[in-house]
């Protein structure tokens, strides 16, 4: 470094391991390549979910993820969850406690997996995650802002990290952030002009979490969004990795 800014500790909240149906030739499907890309960019590690839990079977994919985590300590597990009524996974509270014990988080794909985030369907799952202090991650394309508002209204203790948003969201996100202190945004595709500064000024740097969406998206963009932000070094450190570690219950 040429100035006195300390190097940031980068932890990725949004990576994927495993093979999936439509890889491009440039994309990788092997875990070693994820680790190599993290190395190239200087990313220490991060949360990953398994493609098979997304595209095939959450139960089987979560088991495959555990094998990956056992073999690679840089990967923290992001388990894919379902509502409990069909009993495809462990009972909600047991599942949430297993996730917590593994130092992980939970991701949901309600649209792709064809279930409702309404209380009548997913309420017990969200209750359990809040009770076990497990963060919930969801891609905005899987839910929508009204659904996010509904989840947070019913489960104010639940930490909810919204992934893969875009630049046209502030008119919905600002009022939600005002109401819900446990709402977080991935600082990646959230590309509103000076949006990082806006969130930091209005709601605090604690609300933004660095992620890459590897192997779908590339690493340099989200890193630059944080590194070039007009915020303090302390705030950058929170966004780059500190906030995710805090959400996972680890020391920053």
């Amino acid at each position: 470094m040429t100035d006195s800014s300390p190097a940031l500790r980068w932890i990725d909240c949004n990576a994927r391991v495993g093979r999936w149906s439509t890889p491009q030739p440039e994309q990788f499907t092997e875990t070693e390549s994820l680790l190599a890309e993290w190395d190239r960019a200087g990313i220490e590690g991060g949360l990953a979910y398994h493609a098979s839990a997304w595209e095939w079977s959450p139960a089987e994919g979560n088991r495959m993820l555990l094998d990956e985590v056992a073999a690679n300590e840089r990967i923290r597990p992001c388990f894919v969850a379902l509502p409990p009524a069909t009993e495809e996974l462990a009972p909600a509270l047991e599942f949430a406690r297993q996730v917590k014990a593994a130092g992980g988080a939970v991701r949901i794909f309600p649209k792709k997996h064809a279930w409702s985030v309404g209380e009548w369907c997913a309420g017990p799952l969200f209750d359990a995650l809040a009770c076990a202090n497990v963060p919930l991650l969801v891609d905005i394309k899987e839910v929508g802002w009204d659904a996010i508002a509904g989840i947070l209204a019913c489960h104010p203790r639940l930490s909810l990290l919204v992934l893969e948003t875009f630049y046209r969201i502030d008119r919905s996100v600002y009022p939600l952030m005002e109401r819900h202190p446990n709402l977080y945004l991935e600082a990646n595709t959230y590309g509103a002009f000076m949006g990082v500064e806006g969130i930091c000024e209005r709601f605090g740097a604690e609300r933004l979490v660095f992620g890459t969406a590897l192997p779908e998206l590339e690493t340099g963009g989200p890193m630059a969004l944080v590194a070039y932000a007009d915020v303090s070094d302390e705030d950058k450190a929170k966004i780059a990795g500190g906030n995710l570690l805090r959400l996972l219950g680890e020391r920053e």
Binding site: Y167, F193, V196, E218, G220, G221, A224, L225
Partner: peptide, 13 residues
Amino acid sequence: FIDPRPGLGRLLC
């Protein structure tokens, strides 16, 4: 319209 930093970082990296 969009923040320029991701686009710059993408190319620099």
